[in-house]
Design a binder for these strands. Structure first.
Lengths: 116, 116
DNA sequence: TTAGTTTATCGTGAATATACGATGATTGAT
DNA sequence: ATCAATCATCGTATATTCACGATAAACTAA
């Protein structure tokens, strides 16, 4: 963003997809998503136990995932239980799937052969 | 990275997936990937024409996509023709697909109900 | 009320990302 | 050899990311 003199009007889906991708752009957050995808849920403490990073750092990563809408937190005092965001996770799957399914299945595609 | 006192050994696939996601973490780069996915190929100039950003900025975005291995460039003087990276694009599709396919298909899944 | 547990947030410093204009490099055409 | 065209890279400024420790917030239990 920064010196945004040229403000572009992006497609809403492109913005969403980019935001999801950005949130997924760190190995720890991929790890967290995988864990949540496998076990359905877990507490922050479970993650701080299994990931060798400071508790504050993991909380920060969780916040990014939550802000992006990929996960959701349920307060169960004094813990917080995290799950995949039930509304947005399928949306993310669809957006990524659509991006990759446009082409790419064909092996012998005529790449790099446009006119001019 | 920065003050990496705690160096974590991530799964290779997790690192790859995170790197792909990071590269996709900007609307312009999503746009570029979509274009390349649709038209098979295009020149840098085609992108600078259709995207209201400085030529240097677009070149920078292209470099990120190339460094991440999502696209590849073919020099056709004085132009450069870009395509999706034929080797890695299917890899990226597979990694994202795997991440999203672990669960998530079931609607009435018993979320947030682990023990303790 | 006090103490303990769990998690989020604050403050910080270093690294990276994002945008721009200016300049450099490469090749084809004159 | 020179010029124009195309694209990459450099230099810059600002914003964001990523990590940490310290502290705050919320709730339970005693």
């Amino acid at each position: 963003m920064s010196r945004t003199l040229a403000k572009i009007a992006y497609n809403a889906d492109e913005k969403k997809l980019a935001a999801f991708a950005k949130a997924m752009g760190h190995p720890v957050r991929i790890q967290i998503l995988k864990i949540l995808n496998t076990q359905a849920c877990c507490y922050t403490g479970d993650l701080t136990d299994s990931i060798p990073l400071a508790q504050s750092t993991i909380s920060q990563h969780l916040k990014m995932l939550k802000d992006a809408g990929l996960i959701q937190g349920e307060i169960m005092p004094p813990k917080v239980k995290y799950c995949l965001n039930q509304e947005n996770w399928p949306v993310a799957r669809r957006l990524f799937s659509e991006l990759f399914q446009l082409s790419g299945s064909q092996e012998g595609q005529t790449l790099c052969s446009s006119d001019e």
